[in-house]
Amino acid sequence: MSRIELKAVRKDFGNLGVINGVDLDILDGGFTVFVGPSGCGKSTLLRLIAGLEDLTSGQVLIDGRDVTELGPAQRELAMVFQSYALYPHMSVRNNIGFPLKMAKQPEDMIEAKVRKAAETLNLTAYLDRRPGQLSGGQRQRVAIGRAIVREPKAFLFDEPLSNLDAALRVQMRLEIMQLHKSLGATMVYVTHDQVEAMTMADRIVVLNQGRIEQVGSPLELYDHPKTLFVAGFIGSPKMNFISGSVAARYGAATIGIRPEHIQLGASDGGFTGTIRIAEHLGSDTFIHAESPELGSITVRATGNIEASPGTALALGFEASRVHRFDAQGVALK
């Protein structure tokens, strides 16, 4: 259980700046998620914390202690890799016990801890199998088991669920959150999936091109995105962006309105449109429409509503839900 601080962290690969000055305070016991599009530097940032890469400049502090020059083995962090990175030649028991063995703990203690972790993760029946004989979900659990046995200062996860199918992903998501509650440990979790970020995080760090765009709770990011990038990245379906004369009416270069904040059939402040296509999800209906004033626009309506292509629509914005941005893409308040 520890606090991790990053101070002016930079990382270049050759002359490509991948992390361009990151200052961040990762709170003790929190569940922090790094989210951003693929290639924005999330893994690199996590690996800098882990000690698997050298910093080009800046500092990493764990519990106030400067660990910038320490190797991964000395930082007492645990990491769960996207590929799980299990040792193929060792049984599940030895995989989970490996960090304890490296820490030279006595055999009986290792055995006890491995048993306990296996029970927590429902792996007891598989202790003598090799990773090759396990399903994806079980491998994932072994990787987590290997991380929890040594009671690390913090857990680092690099897209741990991206190799699982959709149903299993939801289940493992819950298990990891439960684990976080029961251990009360600091967890840093990397994902490119904003749904995962929104559901799991106490705090989300949105990264873009090696810089932090915004840090905040899921709802803060949803309600008050500080930049166009964050506004577009968080929320699904994506926020609608409108510029030109309509935006000027709001005194902004660009305005954003989420699909769920557009009302159908409202006549005041109204815009018009024609339905192009509708997606019926049962609980919701996503309507993609073409509007002469707004251009292409997506509307999210609750329930399963009638919406055949070509039908004319009247659209209205919830005034308090309109986000305004200046020409630089920064939110106006």
């Binding site: 882990a50 000690g51 698997l52 190797g71 991964p72 083995a73 962090l77 645990a78 990491m79 890799f81 996207q82 590929s83 990175a85 299990l86 040792y87 193929p88 490996f98 960090p99 490296m102 820490a103 290997r146 040594r150």
Partner: peptide, 15 residues
């Protein structure tokens, strides 16, 4: 051999 596995061992405290 995936590099990940070697890195995992380093995280696990192996020299």
């Amino acid at each position: 051999i995936p590099v990940d596995i070697l890195e995992a061992s380093r995280m696990d405290g192996a020299g």
